[in-house]
Amino acid sequence: MKRILYFLSIAFLGLLAACQNDTPSMVSLGLDDTYVVERMKRLNLHPQFTGERYEWRLSYESTATDSIVATTRDYTFVAPQTGTYWLKLNIYDAANPVEHLMQIVVRQEEVAYSPYITRVYEYRPAPGQFVNELPEYNEGDTEETMRQKAEDRLAYNAGSMITLGGYGGYVVVGFDHTIVNRPGEYDFKILGNAFYSSSAQGATGGSSEPGIVMVSVDVNGNGQPDDPWYELAGSEYGKETTVKDYEITYYRPDENKTPEPGTSSSITDATYVRWTDNQGGTGYISKLTFHKQPYYPQWLASETMTFKGTRLADNAIDESGNGSYYVLHAYDWGYADNHPNNSEKSSFKIDWAVDAAGNPVALPGIDFVKIYTGVNQFNGWLGECSTEVAGVTDLHLEER
């Protein structure tokens, strides 16, 4: 009897060891065999196993060939058209290599998507001459009511506009779908109020107040813009005149202080809103006779406002030489409120995305867009350079 129990014990231990050495077959990979999603909706995939390297391959319908779409552990799938997709994951590992094939059925959405902004998540302008006007501040307004006012001006092609104020002021917007990245194509357009002037020196001189554009993917799937942001590297990104990691702080002005008139009769207080930056610079956003309301966001209780980001070189030139005619020249491409709305150069490619170190990032699509004023320059009677935003449009939906 003891001998029988001994052999049974040995057999059980052998079976247990075999199971422990065959972990992938006993533990779920965390991925299904079949998924059904709407087009232009994210599918975030996260395998439970780790490996030495990863390879995701995608093919469409009956296409025999597939292509590598990612080499990271996690992958976000999003498709612009309906049909059946085949996605294969290979986890290369000396101990436990894994191969998993998934069928993804992409169906038409039940409710048609809007090609326009459907949500403003955050509105935080820097001080400026149009702040508290675009949109209008009323006593008692809060961050939430001002966010809603900004949304009312931008969502669903409302046809209105908001200001972002001086350098760093920003807005974060989203959509009811994922804007798909079509490599090599323009993916979305940002509307502003830039224009060219026929009397300016240079074909693209006029009124350009460039805003830097950042994009994000809702990787964690919570519907909030709290995932990593990536800058769209425009024409000025790699130039020596562009300052990375720029930081500026604005100080709430004393609205009752004695104004200090400027050299121009249009400037009623030359030392109105003071600012300092991390480059050793200091200056003011002057108050103009055209806009008498407070320039500091009145719904905020803080005494200072600090913004960080990439700073573009000054783009305004006093072509008159006496302060009477400033021309704001457009940069080549890649910035909001930089070229007129009917120009192709007011459109953007998700392909331009880079990480904080400047490395290109391959994004399948984006869920959020952040726009902030990229120039810190005061232009006499014209006032500060301030990006204005009038909307964002998904170009792939607009064309249908």
Rank of each mutant, 00 (worst) to 15 (best):
M1E: 09
I4E: 15
Y6A: 11
A11G: 04
D22W: 01
S25V: 08
M26I: 06
G30F: 09
T34S: 03
E38K: 03
R42N: 15
L45A: 12
P47S: 14
E52G: 09
Y54R: 02
V69C: 07
R73H: 15
P80I: 03
Y85N: 11
N90H: 02
N96Q: 08
I104V: 09
I104Q: 12
V106D: 08
E109R: 09
A112R: 15
P115S: 14
E122A: 10
A126E: 07
Q129M: 10
L134Q: 04
P135K: 02
N138M: 01
D141I: 01
M146C: 11
K149L: 15
K149R: 07
R153T: 08
S160I: 12
G168V: 04
H177A: 08
T178P: 10
P183Y: 06
Y186V: 03
I190G: 08
L191K: 01
G192E: 06
A194Q: 02
A200R: 13
D218L: 06
N222T: 10
D227E: 13
Y230L: 08
A233T: 14
E236K: 03
E236I: 00
Y237I: 15
G238C: 06
N256C: 04
I267Y: 05
W275V: 13
T276N: 08
T282E: 14
R311I: 10
A313P: 05
A313T: 09
N315G: 13
I317L: 00
N338V: 08
N338Y: 05
N338D: 05
H339V: 14
N342I: 00
S347K: 03
A356P: 00
Y372Q: 07
W381R: 06
G391C: 14
D394H: 00
D394Y: 04
H396Y: 11
L397M: 14
L397R: 00
E398R: 01
